[in-house]
Design a binder for these strands. Sequence first.
DNA 1: TCAAAAGTGTTCCGAATACACCCATGC
DNA 2: GCATGGGTGTATTCGGAACACTTTTGA
Lengths: 243, 243
Amino acid sequence: MHKKNPDIYFLSENNLPFSDFLHFGMSTDCVIFGYKDKSLRVLLIQRGAEPYLDNWAIPGDLVYPEEDLDSSADRILQHLTGLENIYFEQFHTFGRVDRHPVGRVITVGYYSLVRTDNHKPVASTWAKEVKWFDINELPPLGFDHEEILQKALANLRKKVRTEPIGFELLPEKFTLLELQGVYEALLNMRFDKPNFRKKILSMDLVTPLNEVESNVAHRPAKLFNFDKERYDARKKNEISFEL
Amino acid sequence: MHKKNPDIYFLSENNLPFSDFLHFGMSTDCVIFGYKDKSLRVLLIQRGAEPYLDNWAIPGDLVYPEEDLDSSADRILQHLTGLENIYFEQFHTFGRVDRHPVGRVITVGYYSLVRTDNHKPVASTWAKEVKWFDINELPPLGFDHEEILQKALANLRKKVRTEPIGFELLPEKFTLLELQGVYEALLNMRFDKPNFRKKILSMDLVTPLNEVESNVAHRPAKLFNFDKERYDARKKNEISFEL
DNA sequence: TCAAAAGTGTTCCGAATACACCCATGC
DNA sequence: GCATGGGTGTATTCGGAACACTTTTGA
């Protein structure tokens, strides 16, 4: 697969043979966010192998030789959650020379948003345990995963202000107060209920359903869903989402 | 350097030997933006080697075995522009299986902002020519560089709205109308002069100097500089920049 | 004196905020 | 009834947009 041609595509100043440049390991790590009980959570695994045996870590894997980066992330997500069509997004690549004890492994960081209600993460040979952690009560992590996780969170918090991805954390049908809870957890701030409602409704991106909550000890709330088609159509015309 | 341990850090489902996962090439590509004559420009090189001989391309290079990703980008920028302390930022990593004709090479994309007034880019063995192109008059590019360039531009346009990086395209001392020109070119839109002034001045991030333009056929404009210290101090207190 | 760009002030409008209040349900 | 959260209306404030106007320089 790798034909050799020492003059190709790098500065002439260095005298290293071309083959020395093809010994990188490549992995993807997926920071999986969920939402439950008014707080933001992250799915972590407890490692079942050295290095960092028994340490908590962000789920990830080496990239296969004939696999795109996004496919790799998608594969990890499906393995771990059993879900398809999960929202995920590449956010940063980490390549410190000494970041991996086994060799020069570059990792591409992804974050992902899942609806925690409809899946049970499962342990496997490479992960002794899989568990949701509140974003404010994280265990120590192996590798450079603390840095990766914090950067994922920072990127998510930026993204969430300009694109309507908060919905990915909720079931298809949700109430406006649930949506408010998601944004309060994501951004770690409080919103005024009437104003939040007005803002969301004025965007005209959520559709009211002819359905309400049931079995609640108060007036049942109306259910809504997110109108992705309308958003996509509008995005083409340069209209954006801002919170 | 690469100790072998087939069980480490990847899903048990695959049966490929560990060594197969350490044959990635790794490069960085730097999309260098500049500003001149009211328009946004990109610095491209004309390749002096196969593949894509004579094609225009984004400057880039393979990452050295003992080199961090950021160092690699920094090295490319210094080689090409001769400048130090250039603003640059990683924005996306491109890893399509077939993106590089020579083998599996993953590239980390960076964009960079430079002051075009104080440097002359120089050709070298790996680049027949180096030239600034108006962002609206780009030549066809080799590899997947069109995609990389467009993504760099999109990321820059987002970033520029929330962080005061437009100053990196201007000399230390600039007029407010020059600053307006930068933002108009970056965002491809027009601002109202009085309102733009008010907004910038109200942020209190530019300091008026006791100096004015000279040799202009109209009332000379006051010169300002960007107060990075004040911005950094304020950033810690969660106060942000928004245009 | 005229052109060209610097620089200021004022009005208007819409969006964000604060907050008071009423409604429906389970117990 | 009453606790709980759902849901609505209004008054106020603040920032952005539009735009008219004055100032200073070189030629």
